[in-house]
């Protein structure tokens, strides 16, 4: 039962290997094994989206994926969003629009919104609200978050 599983993945652009137990979630592996604590644990049950990561191009709740299932997959966490050149437009926009208060939900929102803007930088408010329906924020009331994503979209498509 304690036999560890060897998992090979790409995390934030780097080939990464780790050993995990069958029962460990990908969220636990990221935080407790790889030390990537930017991804947050909220409900640990798929309701809040705080643990959202990008797994092979799709946003997922990392608390509802087993670490062992990440074998061969490509992972993006909040730690991989900024580049050497500076913050991602979403991060900059969240700061400028004050789209966070306590900040626990923010990594999940940014990773989720980034996946949307990569496909649809011109996503409108309706589309953004639907896309972010799996991310809960108990502080901001969402409006500032939606404005920040709209604003970042404009930057991503070169309109601002």
């Amino acid at each position: 039962m304690s036999l560890k599983i060897h998992v090979r993945t790409t995390v934030n652009g780097e080939e990464t290997e780790f050993l995990c137990e069958g029962r460990q979630s990908l969220l636990e592996a990221l935080r407790d094994i790889l030390g990537l604590t930017g991804t947050k644990e909220g409900c640990n049950d798929g309701n809040c989206g705080a643990c959202t990561i990008n797994l092979d191009g799709r946003i997922v709740d990392s608390c509802l994926v087993l670490a062992a299932e990440a074998e061969g997959k490509t992972i993006l966490t909040i730690e991989g969003v900024a580049s050497i050149d500076g913050l991602h437009p979403l991060q900059q926009s969240f700061l400028e629009q004050a789209a966070l208060q306590c900040g626990i939900c923010t990594p999940g929102f940014i990773v989720a919104a980034k996946a949307l803007l990569e496909q649809e930088p011109d996503a409108d408010e309706h589309r953004i609200r639907h896309w972010l329906a799996g991310n809960l924020c108990r502080c901001t009331g969402y409006d500032k978050i939606i404005r920040a994503v709209l604003d970042a979209g404009a930057v991503v498509r070169g309109a601002k």
């Binding site: 959202t52 989720a112 799996g134």
Partner: peptide, 9 residues
């Protein structure tokens, strides 16, 4: 069903 994150898996 549920949320985008859950529909993706």
């Amino acid at each position: 069903v549920a949320t985008p994150q859950i529909r993706n898996v």
